Amino acid sequence: MTTYGLVMFDLDGTLIETAPEICDAVNDTMRHFDLPEVTQTQVSDWIGHGTRELLVQALASSLETNVESVRSSDSFAEIAAEFDKHYQSRCGTRSHLYPQVRETLVALRERGVKLAVVTNKEGRFTETVLNFHEMRPLLDFVVSGDSLPTKKPDPAGIEACLTLFDMPRNRALFVGDSSIDVATARNAGVAVWALPYGYNMGQPIEACAPDRVIADCSALLNK
Rank of each mutant, 00 (worst) to 15 (best):
Met8Ala: 08
Leu11Asp: 08
Ile16Val: 15
Pro20Thr: 03
Glu21Phe: 08
Ala25Lys: 04
Asn27Phe: 01
Asn27Glu: 10
Asn27Ala: 00
Thr29Phe: 05
Met30Trp: 13
Met30Phe: 10
Phe33Pro: 12
Leu35Ile: 02
Thr39Asp: 15
Thr41Phe: 12
Asp45Pro: 05
Thr51Ser: 14
Gln57Asp: 12
Ser62Leu: 09
Leu63Met: 11
Glu64Asn: 15
Asn66Trp: 01
Asn66Glu: 15
Glu68Gly: 05
Ser72Arg: 05
Phe76Tyr: 14
Phe76Leu: 08
Phe76Met: 00
Ala77Pro: 01
Ala77Gln: 14
Ile79Asp: 15
Lys85Pro: 03
Ser89Pro: 00
Thr93Tyr: 09
Ser95Lys: 08
His96Pro: 10
His96Val: 04
Leu97Cys: 13
Pro99Ile: 01
Gln100Asp: 07
Val113Leu: 07
Lys114Gln: 10
Asn120Phe: 13
Lys121Ile: 10
Gly123Val: 01
Phe125Lys: 01
His133Ile: 04
Asp140His: 02
Asp140Met: 01
Thr150Leu: 11
Pro153Gly: 06
Asp154Ala: 07
Ile158Pro: 13
Ile158Arg: 10
Asp166Gly: 12
Ala172His: 11
Val175Ile: 02
Ser178Tyr: 00
Val182Gln: 03
Arg186His: 13
Gly189Met: 01
Ala191Lys: 10
Val192Arg: 12
Pro196Ile: 00
Tyr197Gln: 12
Tyr199Asp: 14
Asn200Glu: 13
Pro210Cys: 10
Arg212Ala: 14
Val213Lys: 14
Asp216Val: 07
Leu220Asp: 13
